[in-house]
Simulated assay, not measured.
Amino acid sequence: MGAEVGGGASVGGLVRLAEQGVLDFVTVAGGEEGGGGRRSDPVGLLARAAAETSWIGLVPTVTVTRAEPFHVQAAVATLDRVSRGRAGWSVAVSASESGAALFGREPAPSADALWREAGEVVDVSTRLWDSWEEDTGPGDSSTGRFVDPDKVHHVDFAGEFLSVKGSASVPRPPQGWPVTVVDVSVCGPDGLAVAARYADVVIVRAFSPGEAGVMRADLRRRAATAGRDPDSLRILAALTVDLAGEPHLDGPPLAETDAVRMRQDGAAGYTGGPVGLAQVLTQWHAADVVDGFHLTPLSPERDLERLVNGTATLLQHRCLQRNFYAGATLRDHLGLARPVSRYARSGAGRRS
């Protein structure tokens, strides 16, 4: 289970609270206005939270449109290193006309083109993460060499949008590849191809277990067509939760059609108390249509506390939510294998 914690001054406390609830990871969305009219930096916010936590996964939203892949992968790799293997990144694109004009793109590219470009950014990032072999450094002081040059590999990538040559400037991240997340509940169908080919976690919007099951089957089929093992994909249902209801009393049984409703912004939403939310999540779990949930509290300070101390506790009692972290990395939490480098002496990597 993951949760969005916003991008305000209270991020650190909310991340610590989510860790108390033994959630898999937290996300911080990009593009929010911070103090002095400056936009918040999700990677920086979660890098600071890494020093205040020990277990929970940290997944910032990273907008890759018009970004340099070398800088993007370095920022995510650094977050993985400072968190000791707990980082991911939620890949996003920007269709802003003003942003496109700044880079000489007028008008802005289509959503399909933006996501094809995003796929290349993910592809190049994984190649750069692989460019240092596992035992490349530290260097040998007797020879004065920081690294063995035979173990640093040169990336030569030429795609539809990007041309990248060179290697990463830092060793391979602790997880090999930080966890890649694509939120198709936000980007819609344009991001499906990238999600199926490159994502470890896909967040989907569905209003019933049946709809979620259809989307999961479609993504798994797409992943298989792309040459991936569908079992390597984790599908999470997105749900905006308003837990303003009575926190301690259970309501009447919820019909499946009444449990999740469309909000005015088009998101799937639940309104009620933490006990009722636990009932909804239990129903969806019993249907075996998703691998988990990504919850966005409507009021983070209020709703995350009720989620952790109410809903999560009930799910733990039902053996549907872990009571402790059995592993140290985000890949451990999600049951994802650590990718083998494409340059490993034993063979190629997990994906080409």
Rank of each mutant, 00 (worst) to 15 (best):
S169W: 15
W132V: 03
D130C: 13
D140P: 04
E106N: 08
P138K: 10
P149W: 09
K151A: 06
V155P: 06
V155D: 06
L102Q: 05
S142D: 07
D123T: 07
R105N: 11
A168D: 04
A108P: 10
L114N: 09
V124Y: 03
P107Q: 10
P109V: 06
L114C: 12
F146L: 04
E134P: 12
D112P: 03
D112A: 05
E160A: 09
P109R: 10
G137K: 04
S131M: 04
Q175Y: 05
A101R: 08
G176I: 10
L102Y: 04
H154I: 08
T143V: 12
D140M: 06
E117F: 03
F103T: 09
G159P: 01
A101P: 09
A101G: 06
F161H: 15
E134N: 08
V147Y: 12
S163P: 01
S142I: 09
T136F: 00
H153W: 13
G99F: 07
H154N: 12
G159V: 10
E160H: 15
S125R: 06
K151V: 00
S163K: 06
D130L: 12
H154D: 14
F103M: 15
W129S: 01
G159R: 14
G144T: 02
S98Y: 03
V124C: 02
W129F: 12
D148F: 00
V164R: 04
V170P: 00
D156N: 04
E160G: 15
A100Y: 04
T143E: 14
V147W: 03
S167H: 14
T143G: 15
